[in-house]
Simulated scan of single mutants.
Amino acid sequence: MSNARTTLDGLTPGTWSIDPTHAEVGFIARHLMVAKVRGKFTEFAGTVEVAEQLADSVANVTIKTASVDTGTADRDAHLRSADFFDSETYPEMTFVSTSFDGSTLVGDLTIKGVTKPVTLDVEFNGVATDPWGNDKAGFEAKGELNRTDWGLTWNAALEKGGVLVSEKITLVIDVELGKQA
């Protein structure tokens, strides 16, 4: 039996836009294989076209790679460099969904001109109306990827084994969407 949902309570068909003031697109990587480093992107935009049939809905997201923020200026500059995002050559990364069943979102993530599928586990947090009469919907999503699949291969071997930066990256996304009139 499938866990796929055909509707999400209160999520009506139409265009829903990410509210960047109530959203975060983040990631977690291992440093020295012993600690987690968290980062986020501060500039992004996107929409979800909610269809009559939930499975026909499509999410489109664009993220500015130069907006990466880990709280450390030197690390952020390195992430913007050609060793990682090469923000000068590739100023944006994109995500376009290919399927959604209410709990799993699959889509194509493009970084540095390389497009690969990504699967995200999604939690729907419901729909509410703000004090100004605007419909809002909340979602959380989480998934893992191997950064080397997108050409993000820079690393440094550690003297006692292991590497400086993990290949496995955890994506952590928390968004509020606003329904467009």
Rank of each mutant, 00 (worst) to 15 (best):
D56F: 01
R38N: 11
T21C: 06
P13W: 00
S67V: 12
T15C: 01
G26P: 04
A23K: 10
D69T: 05
T70M: 09
A23E: 12
F41D: 09
T47K: 11
G10P: 07
E43S: 14
V37P: 09
P20L: 08
S67L: 10
S17I: 06
A66T: 10
L54S: 09
T21L: 14
T70F: 05
T47V: 13
D19K: 07
G10M: 09
D74V: 13
G26C: 03
T47R: 04
V50K: 01
A73F: 02
D56T: 00
I18A: 07
V50Q: 08
E43H: 12
G26I: 04
H22R: 13
G46S: 05
E52F: 00
A55D: 12
G26K: 01
D19N: 14
A51L: 05
N60T: 15
T72P: 00
A35C: 07
A51F: 00
G26W: 03
W16H: 07
L11F: 07
A51H: 03
W16G: 06
W16T: 10
T62E: 15
R30D: 12
I63D: 11
P20T: 11
G14S: 04
V25I: 15
E52W: 00
A51N: 09
E49H: 02
L11R: 05
T62F: 00
D9Y: 00
A29G: 11
P13S: 05
G46V: 05
K64R: 14
V58N: 05
T15I: 15
A55T: 11
K40M: 12
D19L: 10
D69R: 08
I28W: 00
Q53F: 00
A45P: 02
A59E: 03
T72I: 15
V68T: 12
H22G: 10
G26Y: 04
H31D: 10
T47W: 00
I63G: 12
I18P: 08
K64N: 14
D69L: 06
T15K: 14
W16E: 07
P13M: 00
A59P: 01
G71P: 04
V50D: 11
A59K: 05
A45Q: 14
V37I: 15
S67Q: 12
A73G: 11
K40Y: 01
A66H: 09
R38I: 03
V25P: 02
E49Q: 14
A73W: 04
G46F: 07
I18R: 05
F44C: 03
I18K: 08
R75H: 03
D56A: 14
F44T: 01
V50T: 07
N60C: 04
A29R: 05
V48I: 15
G39I: 10
V61Q: 06
T21G: 15
G71N: 07
V37L: 09
S67C: 08
L32H: 08
G39R: 06
A66G: 11
L32A: 13
G71C: 05
T65L: 09
S17P: 04
A59R: 03
